[in-house]
Design a protein around this nucleic acid. Structure first.
Lengths: 230, 230
DNA sequence: TCCTGTGAACTCATTCACAGCC
DNA sequence: GGCTGTGAATGAGTTCACAGGA
């Protein structure tokens, strides 16, 4: 194993490494062999210097005056993000969003495999999503134990999210992705990340309204929001 | 040019205001009249001092020694986030994720209304999601013009996201929420926010792997005690 | 020359600590 | 006493600018 550098990788950087990997996949199809930080950065929507810094956390990856080898960099990034090993995940709450996630090909192609789908609605239990049968939520502990899943995704209504979370943690899940609109409490050693879809829209609407300079709102607000992505 | 107060609301704060509002809605049901920053903060999963600072951007909201009036604060937050006026949105790409979003009640309850659903698949066009008919993507410009939508949500495959984006911008949409895994390029004056579901999972997996396996570490990362959200 | 790698400067955000008011 | 409001301190993350190798 090539455990190269005892460097510390900022979390913000980790999030972008996955993006670079995706962009590289697209470039590889084009038959090119090398790419510069500027090119890659613009495709990924980030600043070139930032991209170089991100990559430098993995140790030197490129060749000065030339750029980065596309295949070499893909390998490096893939390894940094955990290689190609399959990662068993369980997903609780097979509503619209849950089934959309269960069937999302973007996960499977990165090694995420939903080995357990759980729901409390008897009408949903027994159906299949993406080839995996939905099981009753009572079997949560058994499913986690069987599959050794270490990642749990919660797409239940807010009211039950905390109890589902507690059960996941007790069953041994240490990483949780929460789509329910509540703040989950977990013991130390467990990592929770939250995705709040309506908050994203809300922020967009806020900026939108500011730009139009319409309502008085409260006193004082920024007058101009620069455009551009991100 | 009448420049108002230089007081600006940081974007990170705006994102949390929506969360506070949601938490307050829950508290209001309980029949209480006031809350302290500590209580509210713990329910929202943030630091009390941070919450007070967030609220202070709206001007003084609370009573020293007492706390915040629940109803008063709800009003204030609602107004700051744009009141209760309905916001027409168009959604392009009615696949699994798109239909999940179109039907998500969390949006409607905040005034977001999907007045236009568009898709390119003839099998999807003509169906209804959440009571709104899906129309052919060719009618995008007409729909935006008719509905005066200023917010667009893209849930198409990555390959067509940029062209859909261009058409939205040309049609007059100035705020875009992008779920497609590509960086969109837009002219100045247009705001794009990106949500990348697989990246969130990827980061979670990375942290997971670091904890289990190797000693090397990710920078800082809060001592995940109570929900290390975001 | 071109492009990477990286310290240093800077911007943005969070947290602390305490002053001020009830 | 309790709790808000806020300057100051800290920290994270981004951008700059240039050193250094191909």
């Amino acid at each position: 194993m090539s455990q190269s550098r005892p460097r510390i990788v900022p979390e913000a950087t980790v999030a972008r490494l996955a993006v670079y990997l995706r962009v590289l996949a697209g470039l590889a199809d084009g038959g090119r062999s090398h790419v510069s930080s500027g090119e890659l950065a613009s495709a990924a929507g980030v600043n070139p210097a930032g991209l170089r810094k991100d990559l430098s956390y993995l140790g030197p990856c490129g060749v000065r005056g030339v750029g980065y080898s596309i295949s070499g960099l893909r390998e490096r990034l893939t390894e940094a993000l955990g290689g190609e090993r399959s990662r068993p995940c369980v997903l609780v709450g097979i509503g619209r969003l849950g089934s959309a996630l269960a069937d999302y090909t973007g996960f499977a192609s990165r090694g995420f495999q939903f080995v357990g789908l759980l729901d409390s609605d008897p009408r949903t239990v027994g159906t299949e999503v993406g080839g995996v049968p939905v099981r009753p939520v009572e079997e949560l502990e058994a499913v986690v134990a069987d599959t050794q899943a270490s990642i749990g995704v919660i797409t239940t209504p807010a009211e039950v999210a905390q109890s589902v979370c507690d059960r996941l943690v007790t069953a041994g899940v240490r990483s949780i992705l929460n789509f329910a609109p509540v703040a989950l409490t977990v013991p130390a050693g467990v990592d929770v990340r939250k995705v709040d879809l309506s908050v994203e829209l809300q922020v967009l609407a806020f900026l939108d309204q500011q730009r139009d300079g319409s309502p008085p709102v409260v006193a004082s607000m920024r007058t101009g929001v620069s455009g551009g992505a991100r």
